[in-house]
Nucleic acid binder design. Structure first.
Length: 838
RNA sequence: GCGAGAGUGGCGGAACUGGCAGACGCGCAGGCCUUAGAAGCCUGUGGGGUGACCCGUGCGGGUUCGAUUCCCGCCUCUCGCACCA
């Protein structure tokens, strides 16, 4: 044994050992139940940061723990290798992504390995390899067959810096989520996935998931199901034209005093008087410009609008009311028009105030309360209440009136129930090079309208062509692939005539939507993965990653799983049963780490100074997994000291006990107390790991180490107790600080002759219930709820005896003698409370 | 505005289904070891009085023998969504 704790020599040695013995291979325990533990697919930037350390530490503790619990554990890792940063770098520096990416992967992988993460590397995948992305193309074609992919002309977010289309979800406050440039609006054709078809299933599926509430709430919000009524407002002086509006508050229809439509509503364009048309068109353009300037507090924008001159009839009051166009009505949601009820909707209220439109109060807080005065009111009454001035519906509560009015509208054939979602279809076209080519061709002969012809399955993969970076990746103009003429121009598979390939590539969220299933059959070349492998491993038991993916990746990958289930590839409909979202690791200054702030702590530096075990321990100990945490140089010193203490504890005892046959059952006195502490610690750490409370699990271990430190064995029983304690410490520590644990384990004389004798596979220790149970317990004694003393009694003592023991205590007598004891509360093993009068 | 979460020592944080608030760690103070330091070890450490006493988990109420925990009403902070009718 070395005389000092020296992780630099210890850690690489054990990492080699694990690799040579191939101990993290999944599928090697055929009869055992499985656990699939996965950290989110990393983008291989050249440098690992502390956030990665946290994700992998969490996933690894769970993997190592479950391996020792006898599970066949799958913990793979791969690379989200396609994407914008590599391409942007190529544009700037002229270095081909195909050269840069493998270099980055290599560095990143070394960093992961230097942390001692127990990955099954035989399953490593790289999404930029044709072996992987051909299945993106395969899925695309299957989805095309099922009508889940379609071509649409859509207003899209365009980033002038990345020169690419961004999904709505990738726009943050009007800026590109990756490069931060201001996003513009453009209209171009694109391919889209019909995720909206799954909106309800995505909503319902959330119920059975063991996910953080916050993420579930964000998804619910994002999907945004809204149940209401579509109802028609017929246009006055027209036989057939009517404005269809969507409302969730049919109960307020008697208060609808105008209709508000989106500025480019088709019916407005059609029906507006000629004199108004130019004005309306100008207004529509103004609103479009304003919408483009999102991020400048668009929500706070002043209400604006124009009276179109069109008049419609409120179908319930039969009143003639105006149609206005308004900047706050969205063309893309519902019907693009709403019935405006100023008394009961805040937006309509503000609008009506500004343009002096009538405000009619038709829902009262209660039947008697008619205090609402349109002239003086500062805001709308938007709660449910009781209807007033609403014809035969007056007096009904809102909930009932909603249904009754909807039913009446339906009976009259002017309305129908309708459901709207905030969720939009997922546009996947990217005008980029470094991504999966979309397997579509255009042939003027076979497909004159340009819908696109699917590439036949046997021609997959459509391989990304090699390119001259300087010529193709200019960052300007048309999609890069369109410039690669030798690739773009091919023969049509149907007619043999000239055809052209689709030059767009797929959003990289496609890769991360199903990669977790590719790990199951990473080398399969007939299918994306095998059904038998899916049946063995899916769903992911614990998925670990950042909460920033709550509505992007985590929604797409649930969608994709449902599609895979429909294709018969798997029986599961949800990809991940449990989700752990880890908090951010902030810099020394409490700010989020970033290069520009110069507060980045490099994992490499930490590992080389303190070792991987210290880094892992610190990041798990300093805060609960889901909370943000601050980097602390002092705390990491503390963890390093703790490992040093563990080392010295073994150093002090190993020689004495190594190789001896010892019997812990002989332990008595202090040694017996050590045994109790050992077994209680086993029980606690086990429970804390099940609950993902890594920080308290580590502090339980610290307590045990503190208890054992300084104990000098004097006889056989003592030695038995200390061996048991040391073995337990090595075992319990092994998921957290695996290298030191191995070192200590071998110090105790253990060498593995067989695979199942390896520490990483050896069964997790078992807590003996006879030893975790307390024999005597300290009971708190209160008088009138205030702590006044303590008594020690047998854990088995009857309530009666506990009460007497407490009452007999001299300190307590001082508080209760001479007073009337009105009541005594006895909670066995916990406390006694005397309630006394004065 | 809506949704979710959080407010506990100087700091990070503990406290199972209401039952000894502050585990564990950091920091700090004193001591040991040392020629000195580094490392390490020991003791103490919520506040106030300093006797076995009082006060303390954001604030104000409530339920209870007993509340960090449950209920009601506020305040502050973080995150997400934000004109979705």
């Amino acid at each position: 044994m070395q005389d000092r704790y020296d992780p630099k020599s210890v850690e690489p040695r054990w990492q080699r050992h694990w690799e040579e013995k191939d101990l993290f291979r999944a599928g090697a325990r055929a009869g055992a139940p499985k656990k699939y533990i996965l950290a989110m697919l990393p983008y291989p930037s050249g440098e690992m940061h502390m956030g990665h350390v946290r994700v992998y530490a969490i996933a690894d503790v769970l993997s190592r723990y479950n391996r020792k619990r006898g599970y066949d554990v799958l913990q793979p890792l791969g690379w989200d290798a396609f994407g914008l940063p590599a391409e942007n770098a190529a544009i700037k520096e002229g270095l081909h992504p195909r050269i840069r990416t493998p270099k980055n992967i290599k560095t990143f992988k070394e960093d992961v390995q230097s942390l001692g993460i127990s990955i099954d590397w035989t399953r490593e995948i790289d999404t930029s390899e044709p072996e992987f992305y051909r299945w993106n193309q395969w899925f695309f074609l299957r989805m095309l067959e099922r009508g889940l992919v379609y071509r649409r002309r859509a207003k899209v977010n365009f980033c002038p810096s990345c020169n690419t289309v961004l999904a709505n979800e990738q726009v943050e406050e009007g800026f590109c989520w990756r490069c931060g440039s201001k996003v513009e609006e453009r209209e171009i054709p694109e391919w889209a996935f019909r995720i909206t078809k799954y909106a309800d299933r995505l909503l319902e599926g959330l119920d059975g998931l063991d996910w953080p509430e916050r993420v579930v709430a964000m998804q619910r919000n994002w999907i945004g199901r809204s149940d209401g009524l579509e109802i028609e407002f017929p246009v006055v002086k027209s036989k057939s034209d009517r404005f269809r509006v969507f409302t969730t508050r049919a109960d307020t229809i008697y208060g609808a005093t105008y209709v508000a439509a989106a500025p480019d509503h088709p019916l407005v364009q059609k029906l507006a008087p000629a004199a108004k048309k130019a004005e309306i068109a100008a207004f529509a353009e103004k609103v479009r410009v304003a919408a483009r300037a999102v991020g400048e507090g668009a929500a706070a924008a002043e209400k604006e609008g124009i009276d179109t001159g069109i008049r419609v009839k409120n179908p319930f009051t039969s009143e003639t009311i105006p149609v206005w166009v308004a900047n706050f009505v969205l063309a893309g949601y519902g019907t693009g028009a709403v019935m405006a009820v100023p008394a009961h909707d805040q937006r309509d209220f503000e609008f009506a105030k500004k343009f002096e439109l009538p405000i009619r109060f038709v829902v009262r807080p209660s039947e008697e309360d008619d205090s609402f005065d349109p002239a003086t009111a500062q805001k709308a009454f938007t709660e449910y209440g009781v209807l007033a001035d609403s014809g035969s519906f007056s007096g009904l509560p809102s909930e009932q009136a909603r249904l009754a009015i909807a039913a009446e509208a339906q009976r009259r054939g002017i309305g129908s129930p309708a459901v709207n979602f905030h969720l939009r279809d997922w546009g996947i076209s990217r005008q980029r090079y470094w991504g999966t080519p979309i397997p579509i061709l255009y042939c003027a002969n076979c497909d004159p309208e340009g819908h696109g012809i699917p590439v036949p399955d046997e021609d997959l993969p459509v391989v990304l062509p090699d390119i001259d970076v300087k010529e193709v990746l200019t960052g300007k103009g048309e999609p890069p692939l369109a410039k690669v003429t030798s690739w773009v121009n091919i023969h049509c598979p149907r007619c043999g005539g000239p055809a052209r390939r689709e030059a767009e590539t797929m959003d990289t969220f496609v890769d991360s939507s199903w990669y977790f299933a590719r790990y199951l059959s990473p080398h399969e070349d007939k299918a994306p993965f095998l059904r038998e492998d899916a049946d063995r491993w899916l769903a992911i038991d614990t998925y670990v990653g950042g909460p920033e993916h709550a509505v992007l990746h985590l929604l797409y990958f649930r969608f994709w799983t449902k599609v895979m289930a429909e294709l018969g590839l798997t029986a599961v409909h949800e990809p991940a049963q449990r989700l752990v979202t880890q908090g951010i690791v902030k810099g020394r200054d409490g700010e989020k780490m970033s290069k520009s702030k110069g507060n980045v702590v490099s994992p490499r530096d930490i590992i080389s100074e303190y070792g991987a075990d210290t880094a892992r321990l610190f990041i798990l100990f300093a805060a609960p997994a889901e909370k943000d945490m601050d980097w602390s140089d002092e705390q990491i010193e503390g963890q390093h000291r703790f490992l040093g203490r563990v080392f010295r504890l073994f150093q002090a005892n190993a020689d004495k006990v190594r190789g001896k046959t010892v019997h812990a059952s002989f332990a008595q006195g202090e040694a017996l107390e050590i045994r109790r502490k050992t077994h209680r610690t086993i029980a606690r750490v086990t429970q804390q790991l099940e609950r993902l409370q890594f920080n308290t699990a580590i502090s339980s271990l610290m307590e045990l180490v503190n208890t054992v430190t300084g104990f000098v064995p004097k006889n056989e029983g003592d030695e038995g107790a200390i061996v048991e304690a040391l073995e337990s410490i090595a075992q319990l520590l092994s998921p957290f600080a695996p290298h030191l644990a191995e070192e200590m384990w071998s110090e105790l004389g253990h060498t593995a002759r067989r695979r199942d004798e390896e520490l990483v596979l050896r069964p997790w220790p078992h807590a003996d219930p006879a030893l975790t149970a307390e024999e005597t317990v300290n009971i708190a004694v209160q008088v009138n709820g205030k702590l006044r003393g303590q008594v020690s009694v047998s854990a088995m003592a009857a309530e009666e005896d506990i009460r007497e023991a407490a009452a007999a205590d001299p300190k307590i007598r001082g508080w209760i003698d001479g007073k009337t004891v009105k009541k005594v509360v006895v909670i066995p093993k916990r406390l006694v409370n005397f309630v006394v009068g004065t």
